[in-house]
Amino acid sequence: MSGLTIALAKGRLLNPSLKLLASIGYALRAAKDSRKLVLDAGTARFLVAKPMDVPIYVEYGAADVGIVGQDALRESGVNVYEPLALGYGNCRLVVAGKPEYKDAEWRLLAGLRVATKYPRMTKQYFAARGLSAEIIEVYGSVELAPAVGLADLIVDIVDTGRTLRENGLVELDEIFKSQAAFIVNRASHTLRVDEIRQVIERIEVKRDA
């Protein structure tokens, strides 16, 4: 079939994605080696990358297609096609903070500080509400920020909500629901039109089975 290059997000999406791809004929040739970043799947090649990098790989055409969370996709702001939502990797992007913010009128608060790994979406969210939030970009343990006085609020991905509770935080607002998405480079979509159509159709059949 094809010589497609498929970018896959590392982390919790990786195993379900590999399983999905194996079910449509892209099975790994060797056992998964967690250190390897380029995997041989016979007629396809998998690139395993950080979730935030997958949209970039696909936008630039380093990979023809990719599987990545919609959260990382929105945050990257890349220009790609996203024909399929895959139904796994469900999570939500929320605003959270200490319980006293639950009833606070944010619009009356000057100088809100918000810690996040998602600065782009956070900025959009607060700007759309006319709030002049100061966005603090952190790379890990966002939940820590309110406890140590780094920020008033956080914007982060929540799965079960346990991490929030353990850090004394409550959910204040949901920004959007995310799941794994299948994305396609715009050039590949045209240059490899038949292969891409075939992959999309096969995934749809498996997903809806």
Binding site: V58, E59, Y60, N185, R186, A187, T190, L191
Partner: peptide, 11 residues
């Protein structure tokens, strides 16, 4: 219309 060529991810 947009034109694409091999090896370039953009039009």
């Amino acid at each position: 219309f947009e034109g694409f060529v091999e090896g370039l991810g953009f039009a």
